[in-house]
Design a protein around this nucleic acid. Structure first.
Length: 253
DNA sequence: GGTCAAATGCCGGTGTACGC
DNA sequence: GCGTACACCGGCATTTGACC
C-alpha cells in the first residue's frame, strides 16, 4: 500500500520554529505551543489512521473512531515527548499513535460496544444541540423551540457530513441534485464555522471535524471541559443565528 | 445454569457560583 | 467579560441478587 499523501508530503520545514514550540511547551506548558504542535501533526495522525483504516479487516468501526483514537495517541505522545532525547517527533509518535489506534480497536472489537459507541456519539451530539436541554424555555414557545431544535439537529448532521474524511459508502448515498444541494449547504455551514470567533471555531472544528470529546479539546486549548462546553454552546447559538438570521417563528423542513 | 430487573458506578456534558 | 471549579444530570455498562 502506498503512503497516504499526508504521510509522504509532510515536510520538515521550519525545524527551528518547531523546536521553539517544543521548548515553549516543555518549559512553560504553553497551550498555544501545544495547539500549534497538535495542528502541525494532526494531518499526520489522520494519515496514520487512514492507513490503518485502509488495511482494516472489519467494516464495522467507522473511520471517525480510528481518527479519534489517532488524535488521542498524538496528544499522549506530545505529553511524553522529550526533544532532548534526540529522536524526531514523528519517530517517537508513530508507534504510539498506531498502538493507541490498535488498542482502541481491540477494545471496540465486540459488536455491542461498537453499537453503543455509535449510539452514544449520536445521542451526545443530538443532546448537545437541543438548546442545552435545560434553559427553562417557556412552554408557550414550543413551536419556536421545535424549529430551533430542527435547525440544531441539521447543524449537527451537516457538521458531521463536512468531516475531513468522506468514505465512498456515504458519498453513494446522495446523488444528483440532492447531492449537490447537500454539498453546497455543508460548504456554507463550514464557512460559517470558519467565521466564528477563534475559540468557538476551534471547539466546533475539534469536536465535529475531528470527533474529539470535550475533555481532549480542553487539553489542547488549555481550558476546562466546562469552559469548552460553554464555548461549544455559544458557537452553536451563533451558527443558528448565521443559518437562521431572521429567527422565524416557524420553520419548515 | 439462564434470565431478568434493580442497584451501582462511570462518563461526557451542562449549569452556576465565584474569582480575576 | 472571561475562565475555573464543582455539583449535577442523563445514559450506558456492569454487578448483584432473586426467580425460574
Amino acid at each position: 500500500m502506498t503512503a497516504p499523501p499526508a504521510l509522504a508530503a509532510e515536510d520538515d520545514a521550519a525545524p527551528a520554529a518547531e523546536a521553539a514550540l517544543w521548548a515553549a511547551l516543555r518549559r512553560d506548558g504553553s497551550t498555544a505551543a501545544r495547539e500549534a504542535l497538535f495542528l502541525r501533526y494532526q494531518p499526520y495522525a489522520q494519515a496514520l489512521a487512514a492507513r490503518i483504516y485502509g488495511g482494516r479487516h472489519s467494516r464495522e468501526v467507522e473511520f471517525r473512531d480510528y481518527q479519534q483514537l489517532a488524535y488521542i495517541g498524538l496528544l499522549d505522545s506530545m505529553d511524553r515527548y522529550d526533544p532532548q532525547q534526540g529522536a524526531g517527533f514523528k519517530t517517537f509518535c508513530t508507534p504510539r499513535i498506531t498502538g493507541n489506534v490498535l488498542d482502541g480497536l481491540r477494545q471496540l472489537s465486540e459488536a455491542q460496544e461498537q453499537i453503543s459507541l455509535k449510539r452514544r456519539l449520536q445521542r451526545d451530539r443530538l443532546s448537545s444541540l437541543k438548546d442545552g436541554g435545560r434553559d427553562g424555555k417557556p412552554a408557550g414557545r414550543k413551536l419556536d423551540a421545535l424549529s430551533e431544535l430542527a435547525v440544531g439537529l441539521a447543524i449537527g448532521h451537516m457538521l458531521e457530513g463536512t468531516g475531513m474524511y468522506a468514505d465512498g459508502e456515504q458519498a453513494d448515498r446522495h446523488d444528483g441534485y440532492a447531492a449537490v444541494a447537500w454539498q453546497q449547504t455543508c460548504r456554507s455551514l463550514r464557512q460559517a464555522v470558519e467565521r466564528l470567533p477563534a475559540d468557538m471555531g476551534k471547539v466546533v472544528s475539534y469536536h465535529y471535524f475531528h470527533s474529539l470529546p470535550f475533555e481532549q479539546i480542553a487539553g489542547i486549548l488549555g481550558l476546562s471541559k466546562g469552559r469548552i462546553s460553554q464555548i461549544h454552546r455559544a458557537a452553536l447559538t451563533q451558527l443558528r443565528e448565521k443559518i437562521q438570521p431572521h429567527s422565524p417563528s416557524r420553520t419548515t423542513t
